[in-house]
Computed example of a mutant assay.
Amino acid sequence: MSAEAKLIELKLELPPSPKPVGVYKPIVIAGNMAYLSGHGPLKADKKLITGRLGLDMDVEAGYEAARITGLGMLATLQTNLGSLDKVKRLVKLLGLVRCTDRFDQQPAVINGCSELFRDVFGEENGVAARSALGTNALPGGIAVEIEAIFEVEV
């Protein structure tokens, strides 16, 4: 099943593609690779999900923030490629989690994005190499920031 058909089957509605808030491009396509800049958890009401895992957010809230971030990343891909069906596969995912020093469940948080991509692109093409790291600060106090590399059809 195509990624676009999967969106419909899963009843997923993509938000508008996030706009850059600095001097960078949200996506750069070089050859058959699409490099997505770090995306944050931007909700439909245009508010960012802020907080620190292990302090004022639990794993479930972080998971949801990562999932919302993934939806924004899909929107960026769809806007710039014209269709998610042009994505061949996810190659690499890097997730940063704003957290306390004692919080050690970064992978469980970033699963919110990883599981979304798996559900949309399939087990073979939607699961990639991945890193999930904790950090003490992210721009604007956002809970997560995620970047990715995709192989695409050009």
Score class of each variant (00 low, 15 high):
38 G>F: 15
4 E>V: 02
4 E>N: 02
66 A>V: 00
135 T>L: 09
121 F>Q: 01
35 Y>K: 13
85 D>I: 02
110 I>K: 01
62 G>M: 00
146 I>W: 04
32 N>K: 15
125 N>S: 15
64 E>K: 11
145 E>A: 15
123 E>W: 09
101 D>C: 03
87 V>N: 00
4 E>F: 00
81 L>G: 13
63 Y>D: 00
80 N>R: 10
5 A>Q: 13
19 K>S: 13
85 D>T: 07
148 A>F: 01
144 V>I: 10
142 I>Y: 07
139 P>L: 07
80 N>A: 08
126 G>P: 04
106 Q>S: 14
30 A>T: 14
68 I>T: 15
25 K>L: 03
108 A>M: 09
57 M>L: 15
105 Q>M: 11
85 D>C: 08
10 L>E: 09
39 H>K: 04
65 A>Y: 06
144 V>Y: 02
3 A>M: 09
70 G>Y: 03
20 P>Y: 03
34 A>V: 06
90 L>W: 03
84 L>Y: 00
46 K>S: 14
97 V>W: 06
64 E>W: 08
92 K>M: 01
34 A>W: 06
75 A>H: 08
90 L>N: 06
37 S>Q: 06
17 S>N: 02
12 L>V: 04
37 S>A: 15
78 Q>F: 03
146 I>N: 01
135 T>N: 01
16 P>I: 13
106 Q>T: 10
141 G>M: 05
32 N>H: 07
40 G>C: 04
116 L>T: 03
79 T>A: 15
135 T>G: 13
136 N>S: 14
108 A>K: 14
2 S>I: 03
126 G>E: 00
126 G>H: 00
42 L>V: 14
147 E>W: 11
109 V>A: 09
142 I>Q: 12
62 G>L: 00
153 E>Y: 11
146 I>R: 07
135 T>W: 10
59 V>Y: 07
39 H>E: 13
27 I>C: 06
154 V>E: 15
113 C>M: 11
42 L>H: 08
68 I>S: 05
25 K>W: 04
147 E>C: 13
12 L>D: 00
120 V>T: 02
76 T>G: 11
52 R>H: 00
